[in-house]
Design a protein around this nucleic acid. Structure first.
Length: 815
RNA sequence: GUCGGCGUGGCGGAAUGGCAGACGCGCCAGCCUUAGGAGCUGGUGCCCGAAAGGGCGUGGAGGUUCAAAUCCUCUCGCCGACACCA
C-alpha cells in the first residue's frame, strides 16, 4: 500500500525498461518510402569529446522532444545523429598519451557518449549514424573536394602560416601562445608563405547574402552576423596616374567616390607591388624598414586595439583624375593588401581613419561635403554622413548621394574608373598541416603538375601510424595517376569544417557506396526543417554549409538552395556561474542523474529552467521541484485515490472547468513545443496538473472527463518525459507504445472561456464592469454599455462621438 | 569604435499594445504524519491600513495612444558579435 504523499514512481526501474523497448521496436527509424509528410529534425553533430554531461543534453532534449511530438502528429521524422570526429583534440590526446592513436581516442569517446545519449532516452535513427573520420565518410568529403576543383572552385595560392623554426613545422593557431611556439615558450613563431588550397566561396558571396532573405526562420541575430561577415560594399575603383612614371597608375577602391575632390593623399598597403617603384631614393631606406617591420608583425600586434596609426611617405605623388591635383603617396599598415585593391585615396575630412592619420602626420584636410547643419569653421572630426557637395568643381551644390552616381558615370566615360562591389568575405583556406583529418586527394607530378586522384581510387586513406603526413615517406611517395611517374601526394588534410558542410546530406543515404548521397533521397528529406545548435556556429559552419548546398545545387545534385529552413540557437547550461565543462569540473553526470532523480526529471528540468535561447544556471533545488512535479503527475494519473481530499481548494473546479483546461492546454502546449518555447510549455502542463488536483480535491468524479484529462496530460508530457509517460500509458491499460500514439487534437471551441468581464470606460476612466457572454457581438456589447446608468451619467446625456471596441473585454467611449 | 540583443518581485522567469508578476524556486503560517530532503491548505511586488480599501510599481527621462513592460526619441547599465574592410 502506497503511503499518502508518496508515489511509487521509480525512474531507475522504468527508464532502462523503456529504452530497451524503444530500441527493440526501432521507434525512431526513418522510413524513406513513407507516404507521410516528412520532418527533418537535426541537431548539430558534436565533436566526440567524451565528457557528455547535462550541459550538452539541453540541445539533444530539444531535438528529441520535437521529434517525438512530430512523430505523434503523423510526420515521418528523420532524427539522425553523428560525430564530427576529425580534429585537433584527438591529436592533442595522442600527443599527451604516447601510444594512444587519435582514432582509438575518438571511437572510445563515441561509444561512451552514445551510451549517455541512450540513457537520456534520446531517440535517434542509429542506423544512419556517421562519423566524419571513417573512410566510408571522408571518401566522399574528398569526392566533394574534387567536385569543387572540377567546377573551378578550388585553387592553390601562397598564404602565410605559423612556422616553428625549431620543430621546422607548421603550427595551428591554437598552438601559438603569445606569439610563441607552445612547445618552446622562448621561441618566436615566424610567418611563412606556403602553397595552400582555397575554396572560392567569394564566388558565392552575392547569393549567400541575398538568400538570407529567404531563410526568415533563422534568428535575426545570425542573419545580421552573416551579413556583416560577407560585408558587401558598393563603391568605385579609380585609377590615379603616378607622377613621373608615364603609363603607370595605382588603382584604388573607395565606397565614397563622391568625396574624390577631398583626397589629399594616397595610402598603399605595405605589401602593395608598386611600393618599390614609387618610392624615391631619399625615402627608400625608411620605406624598406617600415615594410619589413609590417611583414614580421605577429597576429597579436595586429590585434592590439586602439593602436596609433603609423606610416611613411614614399616621396612619390599620384595625380587625382578628377582635378589633376598632385597628392603624396604614403605607405601605412592600416591599409590591407587583402581588401579592395590594397590602395586607398585618403579623404581625411570624411573618413575617421584618414582623419586620424592626417592629424598625426600633419597632412591637409579639405571638406568637400557640407553637413546639413552647415559648414564648419574648425574640423575636429571626420563627417561621414551625406550632405551638399562643396569644393568639388562642377558637382558643387549637388546632394552627395546624387553626386555619387554622376561621378561614377563620368569616371566610366573617361575610362579612369568604374563602379565596383567588394566583400569582406575572403576565400576559404582549407589546408591544415595535421594528421587527423581527411587527406586532400591530390598528387603532384613532375610532368603533369597538380593531378587530382581519380574518383575510383578514393578514399586516400590515412596511414596507420600517427605522425604528420609530410614525415611519412612511404605514404606520400606515389605514382602519377596520369603517366605513372614518381610523384608526391599532398600531405595536408582538410579543415574539419569541410566535413561538417555536407554531413546533413549524408544522413539521407548513409550507406551509399556509389556517391556522397543519393540525390533522390536527399531531395526527399531536404531541407532540414529544424536545425538546433550552439550560436558559436552562427557564421563559419552555417555559412560553409550554405555554400556547399549552393554548389551542389548548381551541380544538379540538389533541388534546394538553402540547407536549413529553420535555425535555433539554444543557450548554454551553467553551474556555479560557469559553463558546464569537463575542464571546469562542474558537469552534471548523466549516469549519476539517471540513477538518482532520473533522466526524465533532468530532461523536464532543463526545458523548464528558462527560455531555451538563454543561458541558464543549473540548481539542485530547481531539479527537485521537477521531481516533485513528476511524482505528482504519477499520483494523479495512476493513484488518484492517494490524493488527500480532506481540504478542498478555494475555487472549485467542476467538470466544465476541467474540460476547458484540458482543451486550452492542448492548444498552448502544441504551439509552444512547435516554437521550441519549452519553458512555458512545461508551465502549462503544471497548470493542468494543478487544475486536475483541484478537481479531485473539490470532489470531482473520476469519470470520462477525468480519464480524458489524465490521458491528455500523459500524451502532452511525453515528448519531454517519455519514460514515465510510457509507463503510465501502459499502466492505464492502453495498447501499443505511446511513441506511436497520436497527438491530442485541439478543440478551439472547447478552450474558450464562456464569460468575460466587459470593462466600460468613458474618456479613459473605468465607469462600469459587467460579466457578459464571451461570444457577445460588438453591437450588443455597445448597447449593453450604453444602457448602464453610470455610463449615461459620465456621458452627460450626449452619445459617444467615438467608440473603440477592443477584443472581447473592453469598451471605450469618447464623449 | 560599429552592429545586434537585453534591463520586470528575494531568485529563474510569464505576459497579440488590453487585469503586470503565469509557472516554478525560496520564504512565512497552519494541517497531517509511519518524523521525511515527504504530502496538503493558505499567504507572499512595494508602501499605508486591524480590515475593507487606497497609493506606487516593469533601469531613468520624455512622447504616441482611450490604453505602453510591449511602439517612438533620448539616456544609463549589462551581455554578445565584429573589430583599421576604405
Amino acid at each position: 500500500m502506497t503511503r499518502p504523499g508518496r508515489s511509487a514512481y521509480a525512474p531507475q526501474e522504468i527508464e532502462p525498461k523503456w529504452q530497451r523497448i524503444w530500441a527493440e521496436r526501432g521507434v525512431m527509424k526513418a522510413n524513406d518510402d513513407s507516404p507521410k509528410p516528412k520532418f527533418y529534425d537535426l541537431v548539430m553533430y558534436p565533436y566526440p569529446s567524451g565528457d557528455l554531461h547535462m550541459g550538452h543534453a539541453r540541445n539533444y532534449v530539444m531535438g528529441d522532444a520535437l521529434a517525438r511530438m512530430k512523430r505523434m502528429q503523423g510526420f515521418e521524422v528523420l532524427h539522425p545523429f553523428g560525430w564530427d570526429a576529425f580534429g585537433l583534440p584527438a591529436e592533442n590526446a595522442a600527443m599527451k598519451h604516447p601510444g594512444l592513436h587519435p582514432e582509438k581516442y575518438t571511437l572510445d569517446n563515441i561509444a561512451e557518449s552514445k551510451r549517455d545519449l541512450k540513457m537520456m532516452g534520446i531517440l535517434y535513427d542509429w542506423d544512419r549514424e556517421l562519423a566524419s573520420c571513417m573512410p566510408d565518410y571522408y571518401r566522399w568529403t574528398q569526392w566533394l573536394f574534387l567536385l569543387m576543383l572540377e567546377r573551378g572552385l578550388a585553387y592553390r595560392a601562397k598564404a602565410p602560416v605559423n612556422w616553428c623554426p625549431v620543430d621546422k613545422t607548421v603550427l595551428a593557431n591554437e598552438q601559438v601562445i603569445n606569439g610563441r611556439c607552445w612547445r618552446h615558450p622562448d621561441v618566436e613563431v615566424e610567418k611563412r608563405d606556403l602553397e595552400q588550397w582555397f575554396l572560392k566561396i567569394t564566388d558565392y558571396a552575392d547569393r549567400l547574402l541575398d538568400d538570407l532573405a529567404t531563410i526568415d526562420k533563422w534568428p535575426q541575430k545570425v542573419r545580421v552576423m552573416q551579413t556583416n561577415w560577407i560585408g558587401r560594399s558598393m563603391g568605385a575603383e579609380v585609377d590615379f596616374a603616378i607622377d613621373g612614371l608615364p603609363g603607370e597608375s595605382v588603382r584604388i577602391y573607395t565606397t565614397r567616390p563622391d568625396t574624390l575632390f577631398g583626397a589629399t593623399f594616397m595610402v598603399l598597403a605595405p605589401e602593395h607591388p608598386l611600393v618599390e617603384r614609387i618610392t624615391t631614393e631619399k625615402h627608400r631606406a625608411r620605406i624598406r624598414e617600415y615594410v619589413e617591420k609590417a611583414r614580421k608583425e605577429t597576429e597579436i600586434e595586429r590585434l592590439s586595439t586602439e593602436r596609433d596609426k603609423t606610416g611613411v611617405a614614399t616621396g612619390g605623388f599620384a595625380i587625382n583624375p578628377v582635378n589633376g591635383e598632385k597628392i603624396p603617396i604614403w605607405v601605412a599598415d592600416y591599409v590591407l593588401m587583402t581588401y579592395g585593391t590594397g590602395a586607398i585615396m585618403a579623404v581625411p575630412a570624411h573618413d575617421e581613419r584618414d582623419f586620424d592619420f592626417a592629424q598625426r602626420y600633419d597632412l591637409p584636410i579639405r571638406e568637400v561635403i557640407a553637413p546639413p547643419t552647415g559648414a564648419r569653421k574648425v574640423l575636429r572630426e571626420a563627417y561621414v554622413g551625406p550632405g551638399v557637395m562643396v569644393n568639388s568643381d562642377g558637382y558643387d551644390g549637388l546632394d552627395s548621394t546624387v553626386a555619387f552616381g554622376k561621378i561614377c558615370d563620368d569616371l566610366e566615360k573617361r575610362g579612369v574608373g568604374n563602379r565596383a562591389v567588394k566583400y569582406r568575405l575572403r576565400d576559404w583556406l582549407i589546408s591544415r598541416q595535421r594528421y587527423w583529418g581527411a587527406p586532400i586527394p591530390i598528387v603532384y607530378c613532375p610532368t603533369h603538375g597538380i593531378v587530382p586522384v581519380p574518383v575510383d581510387q578514393l578514399p586516400v586513406t590515412l596511414p596507420r601510424e600517427y605522425r604528420p603526413l609530410a614525415e611519412q615517406p612511404d605514404w606520400y611517395r606515389t605514382k602519377c595517376p596520369i603517366g605513372g611517374e614518381e610523384a608526391r601526394r599532398e600531405t595536408d588534410t582538410m579543415d574539419t569544417f569541410i566535413d561538417s558542410s555536407w554531413y546533413f546530406l549524408r544522413y539521407a543515404s548513409p550507406h551509399d557506396d556509389r556517391e556522397p548521397f543519393d540525390p533522390e533521397l536527399a531531395n526527399h528529406w531536404m531541407a532540414v526543417d529544424q536545425y538546433t545548435g550552439g550560436v558559436e556556429h552562427a557564421i563559419l559552419h552555417l555559412l560553409y554549409s550554405r555554400f556547399f548546398t549552393k554548389v551542389l545545387h548548381d551541380a544538379g545534385m540538389l533541388e534546394v538552395e538553402e540547407p536549413f529552413k529553420r535555425l535555433f540557437n539554444q543557450g548554454m547550461v551553467k553551474r556555479f556561474g560557469q559553463v558546464m565543462a569537463k575542464s571546469a569540473g562542474n558537469g552534471v553526470s548523466i549516469a549519476q542523474l539517471s540513477s538518482e532523480q532520473g533522466a526524465d526529471a533532468g530532461r523536464v528540468y532543463e526545458m523548464f529552467i528558462g527560455p531555451p535561447e538563454e543561458d541558464v544556471e543549473w540548481s539542485e533545488a530547481g531539479l527537485n521541484g521537477v521531481v516533485k512535479f513528476l511524482q505528482r503527475v504519477w499520483r494523479l494519473v495512476l493513484e488518484p485515490e492517494s490524493i488527500d481530499v480532506s481540504e478542498g481548494p478555494m475555487v472549485a473546479v467542476d467538470e466544465v472547468v476541467l474540460r476547458r483546461r484540458v482543451a486550452q492546454t492542448i492548444g498552448r502546449v502544441t504551439e509552444h513545443y512547435d516554437e521550441l518555447r519549452f519553458n512555458t510549455a512545461v508551465a502549462f502542463l503544471m497548470e493542468l496538473a494543478n487544475t486536475m488536483q483541484d478537481y479531485l480535491q473539490g470532489g470531482g468524479a473520476r469519470d470520462a472527463s477525468w480519464a480524458d484529462a489524465a490521458r491528455t496530460l500523459v500524451k502532452l508530457l511525453n515528448p519531454l518525459a517519455p519514460h514515465i509517460c510510457e509507463e503510465m500509458w501502459e499502466r492505464l491499460g492502453e495498447q501499443g507504445v505511446l511513441a506511436d500514439a497520436s497527438w491530442p487534437a485541439f478543440d478551439r471551441a472547447a478552450a474558450v472561456e464562456p464569460k468575460v468581464t466587459l470593462v466600460i470606460q468613458v474618456a479613459g476612466k473605468v465607469r462600469d464592469k459587467l460579466e457578459v457572454d464571451a461570444g457577445l457581438s460588438e453591437g450588443d456589447a455597445l448597447k449593453l454599455a450604453m444602457a448602464r446608468e453610470k455610463v449615461g451619467a459620465a456621458l452627460n446625456g450626449r452619445g459617444p462621438s467615438k467608440v473603440i471596441y477592443v477584443r472581447d473585454r473592453l469598451i471605450n467611449l469618447v464623449p
